[in-house]
């Protein structure tokens, strides 16, 4: 079997962040891949949610966005933004939320709005969508991003979605009483956050790289002393990912 690509490693790592039975909020892209894989492997009793209205689907085909009709196969309810955001997310029922972003900083704050000056940006992105809501209101969040120094700065240019803000107790002081990032899954490894200080540390580095190389590509101080190599995907996980979750090769290139 062909060795796992970076995309596949990330999808598998994302899937492993989901425990069976959890209520999971997923955005467009790699999080969907991870969630669909988890549902077909170790977490058959998880409940998947999409903000556009799909509640607990049994998808047969990968959606191109969270509003796609493909999210409605075998679904418990086809609702809308009002139900999902109010009754499920804001009420505190979501256990884990998956997010992406253009910049992720030291404390897991996400920028999906603009790089450079807000009013006259160098690059303008789509904006929050549900990201700020999921980051604020989920029990914990898993962030997925390409690992490049410029994308992982000390501080985001625009703070779209709150992580641990400035570390320590700053998130609670801002009035956000629950949640916070539990992992940042990148193309190079998995970063987690210390208890209380919420300082980032490298938990694992993907096969083919080294902890030092990961630190070198990171724009904020990264403790690499506790890192081990990311557990390689099992052949069964890769098989399901390639043949069942994304056989069209929308994300997984054959």
């Amino acid at each position: 079997m062909r060795a796992a690509s970076t995309t596949e490693l990330m999808a598998v790592a994302a899937a492993r962040e989901i425990a069976d039975g959890e209520i999971v909020f997923a955005g467009t892209g790699l999080p969907m891949l991870g969630a669909m894989l988890a549902q077909r492997t170790h977490a058959p009793n998880m409940t998947l949610l999409f903000e556009a209205g799909a509640i607990d689907p049994r998808m047969l085909h990968l959606p191109m966005s969270v509003g796609d009709s493909r999210t409605l196969v075998g679904v418990a309810q086809a609702a809308g933004l009002f139900e999902v955001f109010n009754y499920i997310l804001q009420s505190g029922r979501v256990e884990v939320g998956f997010l992406g972003g253009a910049q992720i900083d030291r404390y897991g704050n996400i920028n999906s709005t603009a790089v450079g000056d807000y009013h006259h940006p160098d690059v303008r992105f789509p904006g929050s969508g549900g990201s700020a809501d999921v980051a604020t209101l989920s029990g914990r969040t898993v962030i997925m991003a390409p690992h490049e120094r410029r994308r992982l700065p000390e501080r985001v240019d625009y703070l779209t979605s709150p992580g641990w803000l400035e570390g320590g107790e700053s998130r609670v002081r801002a009035g956000i009483l629950t949640g916070g990032p539990s992992a940042l899954v990148t193309t190079m490894g998995v970063i987690r956050y210390r208890e209380a200080s919420h300082e980032p540390y490298l938990d694992s580095f993907h096969p083919g790289t080294t902890p030092e190389a990961v630190r070198e590509e990171t724009g904020f101080p990264l403790d690499i002393s506790d890192s081990t190599e990311t557990l390689a995907p099992a052949p069964e996980e890769l098989e399901i990912l390639r043949r069942v979750v994304d056989p069209e090769g929308i994300f997984i290139k054959p």
């Binding site: 903000e51 933004l81 009002f82 955001f85 109010n86 997310l89 804001q90 709005t113 807000y118 929050s128 969508g129 549900g130 990201s131 700020a132 809501d133 604020t136 209101l137 625009y158 703070l159 779209t160 979605s161 709150p162 803000l165 700053s170 998130r171 801002a174 009035g175 956000i176």
Partner: peptide, 29 residues
């Protein structure tokens, strides 16, 4: 954010002048 736009439309739909949300706190939004 999507949830805050949802709340803004919902407020308008319900004849209320505003809606409270837990989103946006701590954010540049």
């Amino acid at each position: 954010s999507n949830a805050s736009m949802m709340a803004r439309f919902a407020a308008g739909a319900m004849g209320l002048p505003f809606m409270p949300v837990k989103s946006m706190l701590g954010s540049d939004l």
